[in-house]
């Protein structure tokens, strides 16, 4: 339910962004030209690899390979941290040249959408680190697995939101 709710909310934000883009097309395309697409591309691949590690971790947990699952989840969290570091670098490059959220409407959307996603990544990394310790929790195996699967779904949501943001903010001509 949380995933579907979040997805619906972001869909509304995406449509709002595209609507403003349509009304201010020339301004948006000019502003978008200053976005470093390499960051977007690398971050997309980082999150996809991270998602794969989470899938492998859940499969390992199901076959009771606790240590392997923990290591995979820790690896996924580490990739999440790499994503955050790259995002901070990208933000600092923008701010250094005087591009901030109120520079224009495009960057207003850009900082809002990527900022909201940034918060999701921070929460996701914290969740993954917590999940990597699941073997130590004193709870029935079925319950621990269910929690792992829910956490994994949240991380995949973070991944799919970035897929949409990459297309909308970095790639659209």
């Amino acid at each position: 339910m949380l995933v579907l709710g979040d997805l619906s909310l972001f869909t509304a934000f995406f449509v709002n962004y595209l609507n403003d883009r349509g009304h201010n097309y020339t301004e948006f395309v000019a502003a978008q030209a200053k976005v470093n697409q390499v960051y977007g591309l690398v971050n997309t691949i980082i999150l996809l690899c991270s998602s794969w590690l989470v899938i492998a971790a859940v499969q390992s947990a199901r076959s009771e390979r606790v240590k392997r699952a923990s290591n995979l989840l820790f690896g996924a969290a580490a990739l999440g941290v790499v994503f955050l570091v790259l995002k901070i670098l990208e933000y600092s490059e923008k701010i250094t040249v005087g591009i901030v959220p109120n520079t224009n409407l495009f960057y207003n959307h850009y900082f809002f959408l990527t900022g909201l996603h940034f918060v999701h990544v921070v929460l996701g990394v914290a969740l993954l680190l917590l999940m990597s310790q699941y073997g130590r929790f004193n709870a029935p195996v079925e319950s621990k697995l269910r929690n792992l699967e829910s956490g994994a779904s949240f991380w995949h949501l973070v991944d799919l939101l970035w897929i949409a943001l990459f297309a909308l903010l970095y790639l659209l001509p």
Partner: peptide, 24 residues
């Protein structure tokens, strides 16, 4: 340019669909 926009959005939504169906 509208064709390029449509194809980029289509690829994005197909990717998202696979993330939901297979990863989730």
């Amino acid at each position: 340019v509208n064709y390029t926009i449509a194809v980029i959005l289509l690829i994005a939504i197909i990717k998202i669909r696979y993330v939901i169906l297979d990863f989730m």
